[in-house]
Write a protein that binds this DNA or RNA. Sequence first.
DNA 1: AAGATTGTTGCTTA
DNA 2: TTAAGCAACAATCT
Length: 286
Amino acid sequence: MPELPEVQTTVSFLNKKLKNKKIEKVVVLSAKQFLGNPQKLVGKTIRRVERRGKLIVFVLEKKLFLLIHLKLTGQLVFAASLRDKKATFPEPLPFAGGKVLPGKSTRIILYLFPQGAVFFNDLRKFGWMKVGGESLLKKETAALGVEPLSAEFNPQYLEKIFAKTKRAVKIVLMDQHLIAGVGNIYANEALCRAGISPQRPANKLTAEEIRKLCRAIKEVLKEGIKFRGTSAADDAYVQPNGRQGRFQKYLQVYQREGEKCFRCGGKIKRINLGGRGTFFCPRCQR
DNA sequence: AAGATTGTTGCTTA
DNA sequence: TTAAGCAACAATCT
């Protein structure tokens, strides 16, 4: 599932490829997933592509914004050469791994000028796109918490938010109103690296544990970005070039139920926290 | 074949 | 008033 590292990988790629290109045509195949009027996008130049938490922000000319949330299974795939093929729209395009775009789970297509296209694929249809002005951008980002890779995210900040709640620490890490961008994969991995049980009440962590956890979160997110995100076995995430990320090779607990802990050899356990699959080593994480 | 899964919102309950 | 828990959303897998 796309979390901060996957979204950042997507945004970095698209920012390079889409800058100063114009949106020439929008095809909405799944109406419920496009909020607002798609025609507003037509003819607009893309100034840059940014990220806020897990939200993707296309900054367009004339103070217009295209906001995209990938939710569980969304992906943005870029096809650079579409125009070279003199395609009539829409037309299947041979793609990396022998796949064809648009595919079965393609929900929205942005055709670009002078060439190229962005395919919004989303198997489970939870993701969305919204067009609007600064008021929309403000509305959608207002409730988001601190960026975990910013200086503002430090042990003092964690201490402050942890003190206010006895919820399980993992649930707090995944609360987008408090920390923007950490999801299930990276919350599990950060807690493992910090040696802290995901079930611990947040307000019971020691100052030392909070320092360790803060560092672990930053570390694991940076590594996730370095390896271009996590494409787990049943994970729909791919980079915009259609290739998988590589961070799944370095996961220590996520989706490793019953397997051996790399540190102590104990069995990785799976429990349910806040309705989410939670993985940890009961021996290493206390 | 019902239940689990999964991020986020919004409702209900405490 | 606020925090915590949970259904709902869509589709797939078990």
